[in-house]
């Protein structure tokens, strides 16, 4: 059983690197030459993970192509008119997803609502052959919708009042996973 702590990171940079490497190998197992995978990073923090997966993929699958995109599900969310105005971020997807094999990538899977919105957003680009979900951290027993990851780095039990934060070197200066008490 994983326990929550707020004094030091739940996972450090090296552990993150290893798990991301392992996840990229799992993706590689699904590769088929005739239908390259599409890796879709969900804005904002899923994009960092998707970029790391893409880099790891290139190191052990140098000749196999992988299509990459960035998806912002803001317009498809179900929490309009709640507490704050939702501002969109960029979607970068220059190709159709019709009949493609799509892997949605996010940092933390919590209630499942972001993924539900992302599934709606994906379908505006066509009807994929299938969609799978990859997350770095899965929060167990926290789902409000029947959505579960196909691949995950960690599965953690965090209390309802806690927040799981993934820090990325590109944004925060260093890689780490923190489980924090909400202030």
């Amino acid at each position: 059983m994983n326990t929550a702590s707020t004094s030091e990171p739940y996972a450090h940079a090296e552990a993150m690197r290893q798990r991301i490497h392992r996840l990229s190998l799992m993706l590689a197992e699904m590769h088929q030459d005739q239908s390259p995978l599409v890796l879709l990073g969900i804005q904002p923090r899923g994009v960092y993970l998707a970029q790391r997966l893409q880099a790891a993929w290139k190191s052990h699958m140098p000749t196999a192509s992988l299509d990459f995109g960035v998806l912002d599900p803001t317009f498809y969310r179900d929490d309009f008119n709640q507490s704050k105005v939702l501002i969109p971020e960029a979607t970068q997807l220059s190709f159709s997803l019709e009949n493609r094999r799509v892997v949605l990538v996010d940092d933390v899977l919590f209630t499942g609502r972001t993924i539900r919105a992302a599934l709606d957003a994906v379908h505006t680009f066509g009807r994929p052959e299938w969609i799978k979900l990859l997350v770095l951290v899965e929060r167990r027993f926290a789902r409000q919708l029947p959505i579960h990851p196909d691949f995950y780095g960690w599965s953690v039990d965090a209390f309802e009042g806690q927040k799981v934060r993934v820090h990325w070197a590109e944004h925060h200066g260093n890689d780490a996973i923190w489980i924090e008490n909400k202030s």
Partner: peptide
Amino acid sequence: QRPIKKVPSL
């Protein structure tokens, strides 16, 4: 520019 140009926001 997408095939489905409609979003459910409003």
